[in-house]
């Protein structure tokens, strides 16, 4: 079960701000979901191949050709902040 600190850590990892007053309620909801999930944890799955895809086929490959034209003006019409063709974001610190 998740502690309050774990809830905060996960929210941080997922980049979702949780108001401090809401952490306890969220913890309770998430733990309710984990109780549901844990029903499958005890199943013996020794030797069972994990199923990552709904279909058992392999990756199709695309020919190495340039097929895309420049549409940045159309795409950037949806952007919150743009200048000189660049998406602007709060200063990135390396």
């Amino acid at each position: 079960m998740l502690s309050l600190d774990e809830v905060r850590r996960i929210a941080d990892l997922a980049r979702i701000e949780i108001p401090e007053a809401g952490v306890a309620a969220l913890q309770q909801q998430l733990n309710g979901i984990l109780v549901l999930i844990e029903q499958m944890c005890a199943v013996d799955t020794t030797g069972v191949e994990p199923m990552a895809h709904a279909v058992d086929v392999t990756q199709r490959l695309r020919a190495d050709r340039v097929t895309e034209a420049d549409q940045h003006e159309l795409f950037q019409s949806a952007a919150p902040q743009v200048e000189d063709g660049l998406y602007l974001v709060p200063k990135v610190i390396e």
């Binding site: 200048e83 602007l88 974001v89 709060p90 200063k91 990135v92």
Partner: peptide
């Protein structure tokens, strides 16, 4: 400096 912001080129 873009007014204190960074520019992203993809």
């Amino acid at each position: 400096d873009f007014h204190g912001m960074s520019g992203i080129d993809l």
